[in-house]
């Protein structure tokens, strides 16, 4: 592997988080409704760490991710503080954003064609990104493109430089999109369900590839998924979202062994896995709330078997029974600090 792609050696002395979200809220305001998509999210990501945001559809995962790159539409009202690599994302102007996207942070998606341009070859797309961000020659850009295709384990990489996206199979297209995202060695990779549409045997290949690249390049990764198994395979830490809030956060193994909050506990029980044959599945009754009004109590209360009147008194604050884990539930004990 060439030195251009190696782990960046510049390590800041103080362990300042790579990503810092404080009280992030996003509303979508239209003439006839307001959608409270994200309602006060605090998250930290250390350099070189993999955080999975886990949650059901509509819980605010993608909106949170897009806010980190300032990629939300004009109808979005964003409040709170978003810091990536020490830079205030909210304060960036268009020029700064251009530079920021690609070199500090890059994003991959479920559908690779949202990120790839159908009329340019894979080689052209990578080279063009490198030339634009780093001012190198076209030839150097193409050389980097070849290295990247090899890095993401695309077979016959040299030949594939000249391929158009539609000429690649689903798994290869996903790899090509990852190569484009890595073109300028981002410190932070944002991944929005990148393996959800893939077949089982291809999904595991892409997950293992991402994990390996993340270690090799020392990137921080925020990986959105609704699949507990995927989180188990790739995450260091997990943040579980429900109705626009993080209801539980902590190391993946601890969370999957014994969730603190009733919602992830229910989710774990409802997720079918081996050895459940013949058993009745535990379910969470009902469905997530509409986000047209801002929840003023625990949003999970209508579906929660453990709810009590105090749950409706206000939005539960995060409680931390052990260092490194927290949950927004009044039944979780606060450790004696």
């Amino acid at each position: 592997m060439s030195e251009v792609l190696e782990k960046p050696t510049t390590q800041t002395a103080v362990a300042k988080p790579l990503v810092m979200l404080r009280d992030l809220s996003v509303r979508f305001v239209s003439r006839d409704a307001t959608m409270h998509a994200v309602n006060g999210v605090d998250l930290d990501l250390a350099a070189g760490e993999v955080l999975c945001i886990l949650g059901e559809s509509g819980s605010g995962k993608s909106v949170t991710l897009r806010a980190l790159m300032k990629l939300l539409p004009r109808t979005a009202r964003v409040t709170g503080r978003i810091e990536v690599a020490g830079r205030d994302v909210q304060a960036m102007n268009e020029r700064e954003l251009q530079d920021f996207r690609g070199s500090d942070v890059a994003m991959i998606f479920q559908e690779p064609m949202t990120a790839l341009d159908p009329v340019f070859t894979i080689g052209q797309q990578i080279a063009e990104t490198v030339v634009r961000h780093e001012g190198v020659t076209r030839a150097a850009g193409m050389a980097r493109a070849l290295e990247l295709l090899e890095l993401v384990q695309i077979p016959s990489a040299k030949r594939r430089l000249a391929a158009y996206p539609h000429e690649l199979s689903g798994g290869l297209r996903q790899r090509a999109m990852i190569a484009v995202a890595l073109a300028c060695r981002p410190k932070l990779l944002l991944a929005d369900e990148p393996t959800t549409a893939l077949d089982a045997t291809v999904q595991i290949q892409v997950l293992l590839l991402l994990r390996k690249l993340q270690e090799q390049l020392g990137m921080g990764v925020i990986f959105v998924t609704h699949d507990l198994g995927v989180a188990g395979e790739i995450a260091d830490r997990v943040a579980v979202m429900y109705a626009g809030r993080v209801v539980e956060e902590g190391p993946v193994a601890a969370m999957m062994r014994a969730p603190l909050h009733p919602y992830p506990r229910g989710l774990l029980g409802a997720t079918v896995h081996g050895g459940m044959r013949g058993q009745r599945l535990t379910t969470i009754p009902g469905a997530p709330p509409s986000l047209e009004t801002l929840p003023t109590a625990c949003s999970f209360a209508p579906r929660c078997a453990e709810a009590e009147p105090a749950c409706l008194a206000g939005v539960p604050a995060p409680r931390s029974p052990v260092p490194g884990r927290s949950a927004r539930c009044i039944r979780v004990a606060e450790s004696g600090v």
Partner: peptide, 23 residues
């Protein structure tokens, strides 16, 4: 195909995929 399922156990992660390539 069966070996490609995510393990649900972060302590027992796979390092090599059971198959390479697409169908």
């Amino acid at each position: 195909l069966l070996a490609s399922r995510p393990s649900m156990d972060p302590g027992a992660r796979r390092t090599e995929p059971p198959l390479t390539g697409d169908p």
